[in-house]
Nucleic acid binder design. Sequence first.
DNA 1: AGTATAAACGGGGACGTCTCCACTTGTCAA
DNA 2: TTGACAAGTGGAGACGTCCCCGTTTATACT
Lengths: 202, 202
Amino acid sequence: MNPETETSYPRSERRDASENRQRILKAAQKLFDKNGVEQVSMNQIASEAQVGSATLYRRYSNKSELCQDLIKDNVVTIFMDIDNYLEQNHTVPPSQRLRGLLSLFINFREKKIPLLAGIEESSPSNSFRSRLSSTPFNELRQYLVRLFDEINEAEQAHFNSVFRADILIIALSSDSYLFQREVRGYSPENILELICGMFISH
Amino acid sequence: MNPETETSYPRSERRDASENRQRILKAAQKLFDKNGVEQVSMNQIASEAQVGSATLYRRYSNKSELCQDLIKDNVVTIFMDIDNYLEQNHTVPPSQRLRGLLSLFINFREKKIPLLAGIEESSPSNSFRSRLSSTPFNELRQYLVRLFDEINEAEQAHFNSVFRADILIIALSSDSYLFQREVRGYSPENILELICGMFISH
DNA sequence: AGTATAAACGGGGACGTCTCCACTTGTCAA
DNA sequence: TTGACAAGTGGAGACGTCCCCGTTTATACT
């Protein structure tokens, strides 16, 4: 989103701009909590934050980007957890590590359903391509590809790791995940099992 | 969409209403061809069809429904082709029939990229759930489930057929399919191979 | 043919996204 | 401190979705 980290260089972001950004995030969080991400419009956020709509749009060109900024810290944390897990289990077979990773990610995904749905939510501008490339999923992809490669090696197989990762990721996207949760009635644990059943050879 | 078939009972749709519906479909087709589905707004369609926007919305509450009506006949045709294929090959192993079915469907999918993208396109109202339940994909699902069941039986396996069908369908959704086509650079044939590699045991 | 009535119409308005641009304000060099 | 100027602002407006509701019109029954 914004190229700088939380407390950015004074050279690159003016003080008032930074204050506005904080107010925007705070207002968005508040409105999201109260009304649900879906129900909140960019207009409402701007007016709650007491900035003009142009100011809001200059920072976040749609709700998706705003959600990504709101979830940023949690994403950092979950991937630190994943790194930890992978490090501490680097001796177990890759398929088991994949399972552990998915369990961690699904747990995170479950806790962050509203914001993740907001990220993938569609706005007129937001081309659908962006949904598969949002930060959390994009980062996950690299981990998956690496593990699938390892699995291929361990099992003398030659599946296309990138493709498998792509499919696994859309299976975890809001569209699919919430469909399984709400329409099919599966629990997060069910979904983990089903995915493992598909992506980890029996 | 509309509960009646093409030439519906005069009792249930007034003559003027029917004429308007035809004009809407014609106008939409024309604008879609000229400017691309994505670029055309409901307003433009209404004005090209010379009906008020309320009239348009009363028939098609969003572009997705309109696209579904425009593609309806092609959907009927492709599933007739699929039925034919399955009938004529009912003796070959189910995994091979699955492959044939996917080949037919991907071929259709490829020819109808714009309208299928339009169906899955998001409008403020159109809850994301509807994307996985649009007619063409919904119909495909039943075929997939049946074939997966057969494959399970033939191979003494116990995969969850419905889940596998769900995942296969989102892999064929515009989001995923166009990502593979445009970002990954795969051809329809490549995609068929990749999918078969994932869903048909080696 | 004439009329009652329900079906269909469409303009206008509420609200949404998003951008242009004239104006304000923070920052840095002098 | 001050002034130049880049950085930032916000309101207005173009355009979009969607629906309310007063008006028109096709249809069925007499």
